[in-house]
Design a protein around this nucleic acid. Structure first.
Lengths: 138, 138
DNA sequence: CAAATAATGCACTTCCGTTGCATAGGGTTT
DNA sequence: AAACCCTATGCAACGGAAGTGCATTATTTG
C-alpha cells in the first residue's frame, strides 16, 4: 500500500513507519477511534507518539477530532471532500450506546441552526446517541 | 428566599444548607457552570459534596448536564417546561470561545435530524461554538 | 561526515470525575 | 433524654485521559 505514503506526503506529513501504521489502522476502522483504541492495537508502542501522531493528522487535515459526549476524544479520517474546519460542511456523529461505537454520518448534513441575534457560529457539533444500524439488526 | 426550599422540596430533595446555596448559585448564574466553578465560589466547601449535590439535582430533574465539548461537564437549571430527558425537547447549547461561557439557547429548538435507515435516535446533543452576544457587543 | 531538524520514547504532571469509608447531623422511636 | 436510623457531608484516594519537558534516536540537508 504505497497509497498510504501518498496520502501523507500529499498532506505534508513525513511518512514514518508509525504514521503509516496508524493511518492504515484508521483506514481499516470505519468507526471513530480513541487514543486508547490505537494504543491497544499497537501493543509495544508509546502512547505519546500515538497521541502526537493523531494530533498531527488533525492539524494537517487528514482526520478530524470528534467529541461524542463520552468524554473520550475520538478520531476519524476525513472524507475526500471533507472541509471539517468550515462549519457549513460539518457532518453529524452517531454514538451507539449498545456497541459503544461512534460513526460519522456523512450522508446527512446538519440542518441550518438558528441563533439569537448577535451570536456568531463558528463551529457546530452534533452528536446523536442511540442504537446503530448494526446493533438494531442483531 | 424560602422560595429555594420550595423548589427542592417540590422535587423531593432535602433542603440542606449546602444545597440551598448551590441552588441559589445556579439560579443567579445564567450560564452553565462546572463543578470547578461551584468549587471556586464556595471556597471552604468540599468538592465531593458539591459533586454529589449537582448530581442529585440532575437525578431529581431540576437541572441538566451539559457536554459542551470542552471536556468539562457543565450544569444548568432546567426551565419550567424542561423535559430534558425527552429527546424532542432538547435545546441547543452555545459555547463562547472568547469568554468561555456556555449558555442554553432555549428559544430555538434543534431541527429534526435525519438518520440513515435502522438508526434509532435516543438523544441529541447540539453544541454551537462561536462568539456570544455579550462578547460580540464589546 | 557533520550539523540541523524532526520524530520518538520515557517520565511525569495535571485535571476531572468518581468511589469508599468514616463522621456528623436531623429526625424518629422507645 | 437516650438510642437509633438514615442521609448528607468531608476526607482521602483512585483511575483515566490529556498534555508537557526532555533526552534520545532517526532522518534530512549542507
Amino acid at each position: 500500500m504505497q497509497n498510504l505514503e501518498k496520502i501523507l506526503e500529499h498532506n505534508h506529513i513525513k511518512p514514518t513507519a508509525m504514521r503509516l501504521l496508524v493511518l492504515q489502522f484508521l483506514l481499516n476502522k470505519k468507526v471513530a477511534i480513541s487514543l486508547t483504541d490505537v494504543e491497544n492495537h499497537f501493543d509495544q508502542s508509546d502512547r505519546t507518539t500515538l497521541y502526537r501522531t493523531l494530533n498531527t493528522f488533525v492539524e494537517k487535515g487528514i482526520s478530524h477530532k470528534i467529541d461524542d459526549g463520552t468524554g473520550i476524544t475520538k478520531y476519524a479520517l476525513c472524507e475526500e471532500n471533507c472541509h471539517c474546519e468550515i462549519d457549513t460542511d460539518l457532518h453529524l456523529h452517531f454514538h451507539c450506546t449498545k456497541c459503544n461505537e461512534t460513526v460519522c454520518i456523512t450522508e446527512y448534513k446538519i440542518p441550518p441552526i438558528h441563533l439569537p441575534k448577535d451570536y456568531i457560529a463558528e463551529n457546530v457539533n452534533l452528536v446523536v446517541k442511540g442504537i446503530c444500524e448494526k446493533c438494531n439488526n442483531k
